[in-house]
Design a protein around this nucleic acid. Structure first.
Lengths: 211, 211
DNA sequence: GCCGATGTTGAACGCCTGTTCAATAGTTTT
DNA sequence: AAAACTATTGAACAGGCGTTCAACATCGGC
């Protein structure tokens, strides 16, 4: 518990180590995250990294969980706002400047890739993904009380496809106008009026609907 | 050029090496692609990998280019079909079984991550991405001759956002129905009738921005 | 002023990495 | 048949990796 003092800057080395790992991961990918590099970046000795995180995998797991937590905040409920405003805000947040930052996107991408290669990370990631969809579906449900929960989950899933697409494509440098249009598209999905039961409508050119 | 014979199976070791690298990359990520592992997987000696590919980075570059080529085929023109059928087919192809295969998706993901971490790969990737959008825009242009080229590029960009989202989300195991709906959505974008000049139509309830 | 607990260090270990290279086998050219 | 070229091998090297560990620093409680 003792707050390390020295000169008023140096606190909580464990956090600094995790932050260093996140930084390296976002900048150089998993191959850039060596225990030594993390230690160097955090300004601590090599041994300390293994003191706070038993394994390298523990360190990566912690990083993964940290980003997942951050993601979940994007669809957290905010009682101070009316339900439809909450939803709209959440949908627009994904294009906010601080989220379209390369650091965050890059981090997300590398963690996805990591999860793809490692069953252990994959499970953590899948669980977080599910919670995210649940959170989004809850926002939709609150904003459109008439919808069944199933319909809300389905809309959330559709929205997430586009959101993931935006995140990914932002990294590749697609133009900003396209992002804006994609955001609008997620809003259309979220706020679409309820239609006749289960209209699967795979018809070539029959539009889903608009308002 | 001498075709190695032995027992009628063993041909073109260079290709087998590249294939082995692709396989390892898709299964274990970049950390799983060591020169030794590639050699083992390809059934050749270590030295041969460095004989055909000077560097490890040359090998990865070759893998990257190979996948990019494959991607471009998805939006290649097919003169034997009417223009709108070409477009529809291309759009539906991205959900075809062989493309939603984990191997391909995983490969794409790892290569994106790699490109994110390395400026050199990033450039190759960005160029391929641009060519892909161009190809898609050309299909749209052929199917809807009334559209300006700019409008076609914009639609292509919007479609790619959703396609990337589908690819990515498929890896996380989103349900198939959502993929189908997303495909329909790309078709709606592609085949949307021309509207009054530059009508961004984000009407849902309040437009994001000017226009 | 000592004590155990917690925090912190860097050397040391064995393993794996990318790359190089001399040696060999196989095929063409002369 | 000799020479020249290409294909293929695996040992060797230097360096980076994750992990371990004995030593040292810093601390609050006695």
């Amino acid at each position: 518990m003792g707050t390390n003092t020295v000169n008023g800057e140096q606190i909580d080395r464990q956090t600094r180590i995790l932050e260093a790992a996140l930084d390296l991961l976002s900048r150089h990918g998993i191959s850039g995250v060596s225990m030594r590099a993390v230690a160097r970046e955090a300004g601590v000795a090599l041994g300390l990294v293994n003191y706070y995180y038993d394994d390298k995998t523990s360190l990566i797991r912690a990083a993964l969980r940290r980003v997942d937590e951050h993601d979940l905040l994007l669809v957290a409920q905010d009682p101070s706002l009316p339900a439809d405003e909450q939803l709209r805000k959440a949908l627009r947040r994904v294009a906010a400047a601080d989220l379209l930052t390369t650091r965050y996107l890059s981090l997300r991408l590398h963690l996805w890739a990591l999860a793809q290669a490692d069953e252990d990370y994959a499970q953590i990631n899948a669980a977080a993904f599910d919670r995210y969809i649940d959170g989004l579906a809850a926002l939709v449900s609150n904003a459109q009380p008439g919808l069944s929960w199933e319909e809300c989950r389905a809309r959330a899933a559709d929205i997430v496809v586009i959101q993931n697409g935006m995140w990914l494509t932002s990294l590749l440098g697609v133009d900003k106008e396209s992002i804006k249009r994609s955001i609008s598209r997620t809003e259309e999905i979220a706020f679409a009026p309820l239609k006749a039961q289960d209209q699967a409508d795979s018809k070539s050119s029959s539009p889903l609907q608009e308002n």
